[in-house]
Every structure is written in structure tokens, then in C-alpha cells.
Simulated scan of single mutants.
Amino acid sequence: MADLRGKGVDVHLKNVSRLFQVGGETFQALSNVTIFVPSGVHWSLVGASGSGKSTLLYMMGLLERPSTGEVWIDGQRTDTLKTGERALIRNRRIGFIFQNFQLIPRTTALENVEMPLLYQKVPARERKERAKALLAQVGLSERENHFPSQLSGGQQQRVAIARALVTSPGLVLADEPTGNLDTASSKDILELLEHLRALHHFTLVLVTHDPLVASRAEHQIRLSDGRIVGGETG
């Protein structure tokens, strides 16, 4: 398997559909979606709840496999890879940011950020140095020994962003990252993501239902009922 470390990534979904079984019935979350996201840009996926935007994001992040179609990352087809191979790409090349932060409650901010490096078996000293550096970049050096319950929502999301970036991913996927934040905190988080993208040169794909959040991206894709209904598809 190709080593994808050390560079940004592009993502290409070809004729992707995703079916789920719900209560004995078949539900189509995505229908024949084709999209190309080039390396280093900021894209937004926008649509109402149930439009398929999160399913599309999880397909890009190798958390879901398509029912039909193909998923390519930097020229490598990934939907046919074994589970362990897909997990390796996720761990090395993809960072995830979620609406509800998904921090571990009983570990400090620093320990939360270190966690992906622990899975990579990075030595303890290097883990701590890299985690501290990322917390400094998100403005939380003085909060590194605080637990999530001791942090505001905006601060928790900053920790989650630092954790997503600590492995130096080429692709960062954000699922409604401002959904649990007030207006001021949301603006701060979006500006921080834009600053960090310019600093680290990663590709950013952000899911949102808010047109104002989506408008900050360089490109937008609008979805409805599992289909692309507007925007640029690459």
C-alpha cells in the first residue's frame, strides 16, 4: 500500500451511492454522487438535516464504504482496501472534528491531543512536545492540564482541533464544528480553522446546515435527498 504521509491529499468520489436498511426498508443516503476535492482547498458541504452531507463526509474519511461507486484518495482507490489498511490511512492522513467535540472526559487537554500519537506508537516525549505545540497554536497553552469539564465549549472545540491536527493530516474533515457553539465562539473557530489551514496546508471539508458558515469556504456543494443539487463538484 502506498505511503501517503508528508503531503496534502485530494479526494475523488466516483458515482457513489450509499444504501441503509432502516426498519426493514431501504433508505438511500447518497445517490450517484461524483465529486473531486483538490488538495489544499476549503470546501463546504451544505444542506438540511438528512440531505446526505454527513454520509458523504464519512465516505471521504473512510468511515463508510459505498454501496456502489469508488472512493479515491491521492490516486489510490480506498473502498476496496481491507479494514486495517483503511484504518491506517485514517490514522496517518485524516483528521476529524465533530460537533460534540468527542473529548475523553477523564483526561486532560494535553492527553486528549496526544491520543492519536499514542495509536501511532510515537515516543512519549515527542507526543508531549507535539501536543503542546498544537495547543499553543490554538491558544490553549495555559489550559493544557485542564479537563474538558473545566473548559468552555469553544475551548473544547479548540482542543479537538489540536487533536485532529497533531498527526499532520493532509485532509481535515469537520462535521458541524460550530453546531454546539454560540455566535461569537463559532466565528472564532472558523477563523482559527482558516488560519491553521493556511499554516499547515491541509485540505478542509466542512459540513454545515448554515449558509453563512458555508459561504466562508472557497467552494460549496449543496445536497438534498442524497443528491448534489448545486455548487462546484471539481
Score class of each variant (00 low, 15 high):
L151Y: 09
R125W: 07
D188M: 15
E176G: 01
E114F: 07
R77G: 12
Q156M: 15
T83A: 14
N145I: 04
D3K: 02
G234S: 12
P211T: 12
H146D: 10
Q99T: 08
G50S: 14
I104C: 11
G226A: 11
Q220R: 14
Q120S: 00
Q150F: 09
T34N: 06
S168N: 04
G75S: 11
G75E: 02
Y58Q: 14
V41R: 07
R77I: 01
S31V: 06
L204Q: 00
F202C: 07
F101Q: 02
S168Q: 00
F96V: 01
R18E: 13
L63N: 08
E194S: 13
H195K: 15
M1H: 15
W43P: 00
L62E: 03
T167H: 05
S224K: 07
A124V: 08
L196I: 04
P105L: 13
A48P: 05
D175C: 03
R65T: 11
T208F: 06
K7N: 12
A162E: 06
A184Q: 15
I35D: 02
L88S: 02
D74H: 10
W72I: 09
E129G: 01
S17K: 12
M59D: 03
V22E: 12
Q28Y: 15
E142M: 09
D74P: 04
M59R: 07
V138T: 10
T107H: 12
P148E: 13
T78W: 01
V113T: 11
V138R: 12
Q157V: 04
R65Y: 06
K128D: 04
I228S: 05
R5E: 00
A2C: 05
D182M: 08
R158Y: 12
D225E: 13
Q21A: 13
V166L: 06
K53P: 07
V16F: 04
L63P: 00
L81R: 00
M1F: 15
L181S: 12
V71S: 03
A162I: 12
K187L: 02
G61Y: 05
Q102D: 11
T108H: 12
A29T: 07
L206I: 09
R65V: 04
R106G: 03
S152T: 05
I97W: 05
E126T: 14
L13A: 07
E85G: 14
G95C: 08
A87N: 10
L193N: 01
S215N: 05
E191T: 04
D79N: 06
L88G: 03
R130I: 09
R163Y: 05
I97F: 07
P38G: 15
L134R: 02
R158D: 08
N91C: 08
L173K: 00
R127Q: 12
P38N: 15
G170E: 02
L196M: 04
I35Q: 03
V11M: 01
E194K: 08
E70R: 11
L206A: 01
A214H: 04
Q120E: 10
R93N: 09
S152R: 02
A124Q: 10
S31K: 15
P38S: 14
I189H: 00
I104S: 09
H195W: 07
M59Q: 07
K82S: 13
